[in-house]
């Protein structure tokens, strides 16, 4: 007697499974990816998206998301590759350029990060994150005069932002303008009263 491998139940299940929309399978992969990210399993969260990104046409959002997850997993070269791929799909993407700045900065490639931040500002002149990241690059490259002018301009647009005031204070300090640095740090403490760097500088200045 022959063994009956494919009985009626199997074919019924196969039929039902084939009727499950592809989008539902994808939705499960997206949600699994978000779940793994929430658990801090960034590499696994990125790997879940691999099968989705193997399909054509390639999902631009999938590349952006995997770029972010690879950056979070400290796989910087994979992150750069994903963001660059996303940028080739959509050369106008500010998301991809902003994303690219992160792994470049993490690798200490300040000029390359600054290049992409600058390209964002060409299109969107007061994009907050692009300015913040460009200022971080200028600080890392010790371009104090450049940073001083830059932070001053951005602070006019975002007067309630403590981070910009910190950049301004550091630039003043390294340009030899201690009084201006003190004033900038004082503004930081108005916004964030317990800001560690600002309070330490103010206390040290008073103690002199």
């Amino acid at each position: 007697m022959r063994t009956k491998i494919f009985n009626g139940d199997f074919w019924l299940l196969a039929l039902l499974f084939s009727l499950v929309p592809v989008s539902l399978v994808e939705a499960n992969e997206w949600s699994e990816s978000y779940q793994l990210e929430a658990e801090g399993k960034y590499s696994a969260a990125a790997a879940v998206l691999d099968s989705l990104l193997a399909q054509k046409p390639i999902s631009e959002f999938g590349l952006l998301r995997r770029g972010w997850l690879n950056y979070s997993a400290r796989n910087y070269n994979d992150s750069i590759s994903d963001y660059q791929h996303a940028l080739t799909l959509n050369p106008n993407s500010l998301d991809a350029r902003l994303g690219l700045t992160l792994p470049f900065m993490a690798q200490g490639r300040w000029r390359e990060a600054a290049l992409h931040a600058g390209k964002i500002l060409d299109i969107a002149p007061w994009q907050y994150y692009a300015h913040i990241r460009l200022m971080a690059c200028e600080e890392a490259m010790m371009q104090w005069d450049v940073l001083e002018k830059h932070a001053k301009k951005v602070a006019e647009r975002y007067p309630s932002d403590a981070t910009i005031q910190v950049f301004l204070a550091r630039a003043h300090l390294n340009s030899g303008n201690r009084d201006l640095a003190l004033a900038a740090y004082a503004r930081v403490t108005q916004i964030v009263p317990n800001h560690m760097e600002a309070t330490q500088f103010i206390m040290a200045t008073k103690a002199r």
């Binding site: 400290r74 910087y76 070269n77 994979d78 690798q107 200490g108």
Partner: peptide
């Protein structure tokens, strides 16, 4: 060469 493993330049 910016390497992810081992991490560094």
């Amino acid at each position: 060469i910016f390497s992810d493993w081992p991490k560094g330049t």
